[in-house]
C-alpha cells in the first residue's frame, strides 16, 4: 500500500512541480485559486513522499519493533505538523487580499 502510494506521489510530484514553477510566474487574478490548489497539493504530496522515503531508508537499517513504531509515529506527526504549518503560511498569500 505505502509502496504504491510512494510511486503515485512520485509521479504526481513531477506533474505538480511543473505546474508550480509555471503558475508561480502568473500575474492575472484567476491564477490565485489555481496557485493555491497546486501549492496545497504539492505541500501534501511532497511531505508524504519525502517522509515516507526517510521511513524506507531507516527501515533498511533494520530497527526493532519499538523503533519502527516510534519512527512511523514521529514521522506521521512531523508530516501533519508540517502540513498545518505550511497551510498557516499560505493563508495570507492566498486568502487575505
Amino acid at each position: 500500500m505505502l509502496w504504491v502510494l510512494q510511486r503515485i506521489t512520485a509521479v504526481l510530484l513531477v506533474v505538480f512541480l511543473g505546474l508550480h514553477l509555471w503558475a508561480s510566474n502568473f500575474t492575472v487574478d484567476w491564477a490565485a485559486l489555481f496557485r493555491a490548489l497546486v501549492d496545497l497539493a504539492l505541500l501534501a504530496l511532497a511531505l508524504f513522499h519525502g517522509l515516507n522515503g526517510v521511513r524506507t531508508v531507516v527501515l533498511d537499517f533494520g530497527p526493532g519493533l519499538q523503533g519502527r513504531r516510534f519512527l512511523s509515529a514521529s514521522l506521521a506527526m512531523l508530516g501533519i505538523a508540517g502540513f498545518l504549518f505550511g497551510v498557516y503560511g499560505f493563508w495570507p498569500m492566498f486568502f487575505a487580499r
Binding site: 511532497a46 519525502g50 508540517g82 504549518f85
Partner: peptide, 12 residues
C-alpha cells in the same frame, strides 16, 4: 523541503 516550507511560511 522543510527549510523551504519554513522560509516561505515565515516570509509570507
Amino acid at each position: 523541503m522543510l527549510t523551504h516550507i519554513t522560509a516561505i511560511t515565515q516570509a509570507s
